[in-house]
Every structure is written in C-alpha cells, then in structure tokens.
C-alpha cells in the first residue's frame, strides 16, 4: 500500500513540480529581462523593429476580425433586443461588449496566435541555428539585444491593437445597425455615449489589454528561449505559446473583471 501511495504521489507530483520549476524559471527570466531592458530604451530602433514585427503585422487580422465581430454582434443583438422593443439600445450592447470584454480578450487571443507564435518561432529558430550562442560569444547579451526589445514591443503593441479591435467592431456594429437595419443614427451614437463610461469601461478595457500584453509577451519570449534547439522543439514551443497564452488570458480576464466591475 505505501508503495502504491508513493507511486500515486509521484504520478501527481512529477508534472506539478515540473510546472512549478517552469513557473519559477519564467519569473527569474522576467526579472532578467527587466534588468536588461535599459538597452531597449537607449536604442529605440531595436524597439521599433519589434513593434513593426508584433504590432504592424497584426493590424490586418485584428481590424478585419474586429469588424466582423462587431457586425455579428449587431445582427445577433438586434434580433434579441427587438423582442423587448429595445432595438435602439443596440449601440450600447455593441459598444459595451466590445470595449469591456471582446476588444481586450479576442484581440489578445488573436495577438497571441499571430504575434506571440511568431516571436516564439523567431527566438526558437535563432536558438536552433546557434544565432543566440553566436551573439553570446561576440560578447553581446541576447537578453538585452533580442529578448527585451521583443518583450517590450509586444507589450506596447497590445493595447493599441485592442483599441483598434474595439473601434473597428463598433464601426461594424454601426454599419449593420444603422446602414443595414435602419436604426436612427443619432440615437445609436448618443445612447452609446450615454451608457459607456470612459473611466469605468474604456480605461478598464485598456488596463486589461496591458495585462494581457505583458502575459503574452512574456510567454512568447520565454517559450522561444526555453525551446529545445530542434525543429520539433520549436514547433512544439510555438503551439505551447498559443495554448498557454489563451488559458492565461481567459484566467486573467476573470480575475481582472472580478476586481474591476465588482458591485457595479
């Protein structure tokens, strides 16, 4: 019996300790990135390149998805609202859902799969082809030169992309609600304006996306840096970035929402 119990503990414990070790390593890694972030600030060109890589290249998928999400929201919302004769509140529904939840969360999920995976793959490839080791041997710290700029580039891009997602979504809702379903344009905007609070809704949404940006950027650079230096290792790491990011985003979203909108 004790033998079986020990085996049970091992079965339970091994994955758990593995995860804990990884989490601890990720925390240490974050501190190391922060310590080596000075170079990123003194050489904005490195940062610009990463904002281009993570942010600019994600604009298309973010805005197109935002537009469609907004249009679907408007169609679905209209159908439900008109049963209560409240179809004029469509603007409120679209704007609140987007600004509070969908913009930050769906934007972050898309960002993780577009930019996060690309960051992981790029770092993993640099490791596999010994580019990081070569840099180290040239007495250039890859943490400062490669990892930190990517990390900050991701963090800076995320809130801007989330705002674009929300804006495009609201525009999509406007297209469907006003142009297609014939709601009154004035009341669409004014009702929306009356119900959406800048500090409570918009700013909180942005705060959320900043947190998501930090989480995605850290996961992406960490998985890339930690990837086994093989083709298989890099592909697994890329998948893991997307999966882990998605889980962390949703868990973080729950926690942040519970803090922000409690009792309102």
């Amino acid at each position: 019996m004790p033998d079986q119990f020990r085996r049970f503990c091992q079965w339970l414990g091994a994955p758990l300790t593995d995860r804990l070790i990884k989490l601890g390593f990720a925390c240490r890694f974050l501190l190391a990135i922060l310590r080596h972030s000075a170079v990123t600030l003194t050489r904005p060109r490195l940062l610009l390149r990463e904002i281009w890589f993570a942010g600019v290249l994600s604009v298309l998928i973010i805005s197109v998805s935002g537009l469609f999400v907004g249009m679907v929201l408007a169609l679905q919302g209209y159908d439900t609202l008109q049963r209560f004769g409240a179809s004029s509140s469509l603007g409120i529904l679209v704007a609140l859902s987007l600004v509070r939840e969908l913009g930050p969360v769906v934007g972050a999920l898309l960002f993780a799969s577009r930019a996060g995976s690309a960051i992981t793959a790029e770092i993993g490839l640099m490791k596999t082809t010994e580019q990081l080791a070569a840099m180290e041997m040239m007495a250039v710290n890859p943490l400062a030169r490669v990892i930190a700029p990517k990390f900050w580039g991701g963090i800076i891009s995320m809130p801007l992309l989330a705002a674009m997602f929300s804006a495009m979504g609201i525009f999509g809702g406007y297209l469907i609600g006003v142009q297609l379903l014939g709601l009154d344009e004035g009341s669409f905007w004014s009702q929306m304006q009356g119900a959406v609070d800048f500090r409570l809704d918009v700013v909180n949404g942005i705060i959320k996306s900043v947190f998501f940006g930090i989480a995605i950027a850290l996961i992406a650079v960490f998985e890339g840096y930690d990837a086994p230096p093989t083709a298989e290792g890099v592909s697994t790491a890329t998948t893991r970035t997307v999966v882990t990011s998605a889980l962390v985003i949703l868990a973080l979203d729950f926690i942040l929402t519970a803090f922000m909108f409690r009792g309102v």
Binding site: M126, T129, E130, Q131, A133, M137, A139
Partner: peptide
C-alpha cells in the same frame, strides 16, 4: 565573462549568421 568573450572569435558549425 563578456570582457573575456571580446577576445574570442568563434565560427559555429553552420555559420550561425543572423538571418
């Protein structure tokens, strides 16, 4: 260590050029 590496040059197996 970084100062020391400044005195080293290394050719990696497949070159390890920045792509």
């Amino acid at each position: 260590l970084y100062e020391l590496r400044g005195k080293l040059g290394m050719l990696f197996q497949f070159g390890a050029l920045f792509t």
